[in-house]
Amino acid sequence: MIKKFVNRHMCGVFIAPACLVTVLLLAYPICISIFYSFTNKSLLGKPLKFVGLSNYQAVLSNPEFYQALWNTIVYTVISLSLQLLLGFLLALALNRITRFQGLFRTLILIPWAFPMIIVTFTWSYLLNDLYGIVNGKLLQWGLIARPIQFLADPRFAMITVSLVNVWFGVPLFAVNILASLQTIPKDLYEAAQIDGASALMRFRFITLPFVRVIAGLLIILRTIWIFNSFDLIFLMTGGGPGTSTVTVPIFAYRMGWTLYSLGRSSAVTILLLLFLAGACFLYFRILDRWEKEVSQ
């Protein structure tokens, strides 16, 4: 009886646990956040009351929110574009070489073995102004006269945290793009060469179309991940100096966790979700077009 049911409705039965998990772990927080965002929900035991849109109003009229949103975008764009570019470059190089491929692949993967807390700790140590080895060596070689304030100078802080993020994220791009490079049939290149296509043209018309679908998917996953990432910046600068590295998750954290105001922080979450959903929608449209081109 059960066997028959499973046999007939296999898809439904198989999907059910995943749906349950997704719905429980996703619908629940979304529903509760939407609900809280219209209330004065606080952890300090105040009577719950509806406050309409005033949480949204308070967030949207706070100039710091826009600063945080802008910082998040800058952080995401710098991190993502460099990760993609360097990852692509490394993948091409790895695909090209004939010896030591395994060795280089392992070496390039190293940053990925670092838990985030060790990433931030290690880089804070390396870049420290008083006893960091980076400043130490630069001073020793006479390249700089005073230590560079990587994390304390508002001009450098955002670049520094972005680059640390790039360091951490490049391996993922490199390995995935390498994998997709390896699926390109070699005879395509040979045929193109016989037809007299230049290296640039071969890249443009053979390599790129093959790689960009997987790259597109990676970009979506990483955009979301970077946009939402909290620990890297929080552990390295806490949003400072000034407001130069305050991102939306840090902004929301200060509301929700330290002011005990779930209502306010839920409103930030919902706004962030709307923004991300919009970005993903755009990505999906582009991805659709690319997929169509590939299948043609």
């Binding site: 409705h9 898809c11 439904g12 999907i15 059910a16 749906c19 349950l20 719905v23 429980l24 619908a27 629940y28 529903c31 509760i32 609900f35 035991g45 105040k46 009577p47 719950l48």
Partner: peptide, 28 residues
């Protein structure tokens, strides 16, 4: 198939909304 998934989804959503409701009414 589509219908079934929709039913499962709806059930789960309402279940989780219920738990959310409980949490709220109890907490304050």
């Amino acid at each position: 198939m589509k219908k079934r998934i929709a039913i499962i989804l709806a059930l789960a959503v309402s279940a989780s909304a219920l738990t959310a409701g409980c949490g709220n009414s109890k907490k304050p």
